[in-house]
Design a protein around this nucleic acid. Structure first.
Lengths: 200, 200
DNA sequence: AACGTTCTTTGCGGAAAACGCAAAACGCGG
DNA sequence: CCGCGTTTTGCGTTTTCCGCAAAGAACGTT
């Protein structure tokens, strides 16, 4: 577990030194191109200095190598997305995408009768929304409109429009939703929070 | 220059927070799976804590995302390798590979008469060596053997054998050399240094 | 609308790491 | 053996980190 991390951490210094030597660069020269003092570079390569991002980023640029390559982190990423569903207001949300940026795909599950008798509570946020009903009938409140999507039906809209989803009847509803990419903003939860929105 | 780095650095916190929210994970839960205390996570996401590797690595594993993706470092790497030749003992070395790990390719240039009258000084190190003479005639001292490679000729050997290269006559010599990958060790300079060898 | 729960932020003081500088140590070639 | 370029290290000061626990916010419920 943590051994793994420690191993990578301990290997970063030597790895950096090897890379530098291989390129025929001196500490002094590297210090010039990165703006990092020689002493710090020395300590970093010998493991007497923690490899912080403020050091790794300039180095990655100097060496023209991604950070992961720099630190030699094992690229043991499972290509399959392992969904970690969570619940928000009784609605189960299954994130189907992994990467922080770009499109975000979810599957939403509304248990039977979840929104029974509830007041629609439309919210708005940045982005563009596309959705597709897998099961059940989805009530969509969108701006002034209030309509129902049946199984296999789809919809798309700009999420600046206040919107809200609910069960159309007393059966449970499942639907895909794909969020994108209006200035790389993110849909996160019902209420829009300024700082969820900062860096995609 | 440094603005760029600062920008990325400042964006890491918010980016981490956005990612966590998107996954529907609480600080407490994340603290459990990563072993990082809640307070630290909070400070990290709010930018009051430096994003050190000892934090980013567990996070990258928890989120199943490479570190570069985590921090949103611009992937503006030039696919072309931009060689940065350097000189070692009068011999010009042109690194043709960029990645720290795996195979390493070089072009070596020995100016005319560089090794004239010099004593061969064979050294050994870890790895496997393959080479190809582009121009001139290359003298290769390899263990007990001492031979000459002409243009277009190639050789390969285990670098545990002490070896040395020189001009076979008074013309300049150019040759490719590809180093690999015996336990991921690296050819760096004439003399073998223990710590050049640690982490590929 | 007030409540309780859960999640998140923040203040604190001691401990640890970082900082740049300059001197010392090292490596290598002459 | 000397000299130069490179790298390491000692030092005192300054900054950051640390976990804890209390305070504060957000949210769902009564």
């Amino acid at each position: 577990m943590s051994d793994d991390v420690d191993a990578v951490l301990a290997a970063v210094g030597p790895r950096l030194r090897a890379l530098r030597r291989r390129r025929g660069v001196t500490l002094t020269a590297l210090a010039e191109t990165t703006g990092i003092p020689v002493s710090t570079l020395s300590r970093l390569e010998s493991g007497h200095r923690k490899p912080g991002l403020e050091l790794l980023l300039p180095l990655a640029r100097a060496y023209q190598v991604p950070v992961d390559e720099l630190i030699g982190a094992p690229a043991d990423l499972d290509p399959r997305v392992r969904p970690q569903p969570f619940t928000r207001n009784g609605m189960t949300v299954v994130p189907l995408t992994r990467k922080p940026g770009g499109l975000q795909a979810y599957k939403h599950i509304l248990p039977a009768g979840l929104t029974e008798g509830r007041e629609p509570d439309p919210r708005s946020h940045e982005g563009y929304h596309w959705l597709y009903v897998l099961r059940g009938r989805l009530r969509v409140v969108l701006g002034e409109k209030d309509f129902v999507l049946a199984e296999g039906e789809a919809a798309e809209f700009d999420t600046h429009l206040p919107h809200w989803f609910g069960n159309a009847d007393d059966h449970h509803v499942e639907f895909f939703s794909i969020l994108g990419s209006q200035g790389e903003r993110v849909h996160i939860k019902a209420r829009f929070r300024p700082d969820d929105d900062r860096a995609l």
